[in-house]
Design a protein around this nucleic acid. Structure first.
Length: 517
RNA sequence: GGCGACGUAGCCAAGUGGUAAGGCAAGGGUCUGCAAAACCCUCAUUCGUGAGUUCGAUUCUCACCGUCGCCUCCA
């Protein structure tokens, strides 16, 4: 097991991962507020968290992840009311949409997806603890956290609240507080709002409260890693720390990892700028429908602490990069191995020209991930490997076991990346709608996902046998120097989206998967 | 006003106190009946600008320019 180190927002330094229990990671990742569809910025963060959990497992850890679903807050309440729906009826489709997005991007499901509305008693209990300890007070039916009582408040964000400008939002706050910087734990119900009974009368939880209460319930009073977007650092995570640690007297989370934001065409994504994308927007893009696979690649390929500049052109680059790996896989499957020459019987390394390359890949890949999730570097090791394998294939020097070894190595690194096997991914064919029908429940783990490479191509008129026969006919024609006939067959196959590759070892073929190329 | 991040080839993007990974694009080559597809090779004397520290800086320091983020319910 390799011990990774991560940049901890708490302290702003990279430090080795220390877990409460050896080999086990308790991970809490802030989930969506289900007032609308997730946008690709949200998804960038979720992809980062997916890479984190997969990397931890790759490095030998067992991971237990909790992601909350915020299904009650100002926005959900306001919009539900606008549409005259109950809160549950309003949030349900967006919750489903969120899970569907996770499946589309092959984000592994967390172990728990607790909903805020289902944990109100736990939240009330937490507030009671804070009130008892003098960290919280009641005012007009609401409960506030008394920041002045918390001497180390601000240590995550680095804000000295005495210096912080008193923003409009603070000053204009409609609630009455002892100190304008105090934040609300429990909001007294206003007429017409959803509410729960509490010792302080009807009300609803404040935003920060749910994460403290639910992480405590599912992960314990202290856990290992807490993630979210950078905008969560303040106030959300700062307030979670304040609430949780004041209540328990114990450290809340040991490591905080925050994902930088995604920007679009160099600018902040916002609806007013017209550069705001949900996943659906991209999958159903009128001129260039995105491949989910390329999207995942694009979202994971930039280091999580760096702003990701999302562009449509970048999506094309991602597709091209993946094609490079696919092509190696394709060539490998059609190549033949030769008997390994027993060079040195004293060293039982199982032969294979590519054995050293495989070992280098696995070592370097793991080392890159262990270094604060350096995905760019990890990808570089994959492409170095691809080049090495290509050279061996082209020179015809694959040896016994090399094919299996290369495929196993690819599968191994793909346990983390989740993009390298085209058979796992449907092709986006916009006119016929989403290729995969069923969308219920959280996404399946890769191991459980049925792999059916040909499933999406069954609508082609030509069967594999037809194609093989035509290729044979073309080969015969070429042998007879009947090039007119040979080219005719080639054109016919091209029209059917069949790509021929003539090599010194014969003709191999593949179906053109992309809708552009 | 406070705090912070970033600026590396046409584009995306790693990285290090000792002389610049990887991907896309581009150019060349190989293969081919011709092609296509594919593969291979090449592609930053230089890391926003200026100064400083140093034997040596893209990497450290300072200043400047530029881009961006957070500053109480935005991932």
């Amino acid at each position: 097991m390799t011990t990774p180190s991560f940049h901890n927002t708490l302290g702003r330094r990279q430090e080795p991962l220390e877990t409460l229990q050896p080999g086990k990671v308790k991970l809490y990742t802030c989930g969506p507020t289900v007032y609308d569809h997730a946008h690709i910025g949200n998804l960038r963060t979720f992809v980062f968290e997916d890479i984190l959990r997969r990397s931890l497992r790759y490095l030998g850890y067992e991971v237990y992840q909790v992601m909350n679903i915020t299904d009650v807050d100002d926005k959900t309440i306001a919009r539900a009311r606008e549409q005259q729906l109950s809160l549950a009826d309003y949030t349900r489709p967006f919750t489903e949409s969120f899970f569907e997005d996770l499946r589309t991007l092959h984000i592994e499901p967390a172990e728990q997806y607790p909903r805020a509305t289902e944990h109100v008693p736990e939240m009330i209990a937490l507030v009671e603890r804070l009130v008892e300890k003098g960290y919280a007070y009641e005012s007009e039916g609401s409960i506030f956290f008394r920041i002045a009582q918390d001497e180390d408040y601000g240590r995550l964000s680095g804000f000295d609240l005495d210096q912080v400008r008193q923003g409009d939002r603070v000053v204009d706050d409609e609630y009455s507080k002892e100190d304008p910087r105090d934040f609300v734990l429990w909001k007294g119900a206003k007429p017409g709002e959803p509410h729960w009974d509490s010792p302080w009368g009807p009300g609803r939880p404040g935003w920060h409260l749910e994460c403290s209460a639910m992480s405590m319930k599912y992960l314990g009073e202290t856990f290992d890693i807490h993630c979210g977007g950078v905008d969560n650092i303040f106030p959300h995570h700062e307030n979670e720390i304040a609430q949780s640690e004041s209540a328990t007297g114990k450290p809340f989370a040991r490591h905080f990892l925050h994902a930088e934001h995604l920007i679009v065409d160099g600018e902040k994504m916002s609806k007013s700028r017209g550069n705001f994308y949900t996943l659906k927007d991209l999958l159903e893009h009128p001129t260039k429908p995105a491949e989910p696979r390329a999207l995942r690649y694009a979202l994971l390929s930039v280091h999580y602490r760096k702003k990701l500049n999302f562009t449509l052109a970048g999506l094309d680059d991602a597709e091209a990069a993946l094609r490079r790996v696919d092509q190696m896989r394709f060539a490998l499957e059609h190549a033949t191995e030769k008997e390994a020459v027993a060079v040195d019987l004293r060293v039982d390394r199982g032969g294979g020209a590519l054995r050293p390359a495989v070992e280098r890949l696995e070592n370097d890949f793991a080392a890159a991930l262990a270094d604060d999730l350096n995905v760019s570097k990890a990808l570089a090791t994959v492409f170095d490997f691809v080049r090495t394998v290509n050279k061996v294939i082209e020179s015809g020097s694959l040896e016994n076991g090399d094919k299996a070894r290369v495929l196993a190595a690819l599968a191994s690194v793909d346990d983390v990346l989740g993009v390298l096997d085209p058979a796992d991914w449907p092709v986006n064919r916009p006119p016929t709608g989403p290729p995969n029908g069923s969308v219920d429940g959280p996404p399946k783990a890769p191991a459980d996902r049925p792999v059916d490479a040909e499933a999406e191509t069954r609508d082609n008129q030509l069967s594999d046998d037809d194609i093989e026969a035509l290729i044979q006919a073309r080969t015969d024609a070429r042998a007879d120097k009947n090039f007119a006939r040979a080219d005719e067959i080639r054109d016919q196959l091209t029209e059917q989206g069949i790509v021929l590759e003539d090599t010194p070892q014969g003709t191999r073929w593949k179906r053109n998967r992309g809708h552009l190329s």
